[in-house]
């Protein structure tokens, strides 16, 4: 199979959550999101209720993908940072490792310089966790074998139930 599923266990998830929680406080930002390049939200910290996180994740991924396409057109590997400046709120988007995107939303109570500085540190920590997850995904027979997939016995009835039949 060409695809490698992203499987996240509780321990890694808690570590990611802790890092972005710290980033949100240290950078005096409003919200921090961690999403994957395919548009799925992985973790969030701060006042997340004020934002439609699912749409944000998918649009961010679309934005990064389009910018990636632009980078390749002009012969760059990628643009690792995108910054959108608004009247009140700003959006700082950066790439973490091969498949993560870190989104920081901040207003005038922080500054671009502070956000950049804190994001840099958090990115390194996040990348280590992503690498571990990636390594495990490739090492199918190794560490993965310890976990029994909960999806080994999906039946037609399970699927019918999803659709309310």
């Amino acid at each position: 199979m060409a695809k490698l599923d992203l499987v996240m266990f509780e321990e890694e998830y808690n570590q990611l959550q802790e890092i972005i929680g710290r980033l949100q406080v240290d950078s005096s930002s409003k919200v921090v999101f961690l999403v994957d390049k395919n548009g799925q939200q992985i973790a969030a910290a701060g006042d997340v209720r004020s934002i439609d996180a699912t749409s944000l994740a998918s649009l961010t991924a679309g934005n990064v993908a389009a910018t990636d396409g632009l980078a390749k057109l002009i012969g760059e590997k990628e643009f690792s940072l995108l910054f959108h400046e608004g009247e009140k709120d700003n959006l700082h988007i950066s790439i973490v490792g091969k498949r993560g995107i870190l989104v920081v939303i901040f207003d005038q109570s922080s500054s671009l310089a502070l956000v950049r500085l804190r994001v840099k540190k958090a990115s390194r920590e996040l990348q280590e966790i992503f690498e571990r997850v990636e390594y495990r995904a490739q090492d199918q027979g190794g560490e993965n074998a310890k976990f029994e997939s909960p999806f080994t016995e999906i039946t037609d009835e399970d699927i019918d139930r999803l659709f309310g039949d």
């Binding site: 499987v7 509780e10 998830y13 994957d36 799925q40 992985i42």
Partner: peptide, 15 residues
């Protein structure tokens, strides 16, 4: 690429 989150017990699929 399915995203399976064991912490929040979620499976996300892209169609």
């Amino acid at each position: 690429m399915t995203f399976i989150n064991y912490a929040s017990r979620e499976i996300n699929c892209k169609i």
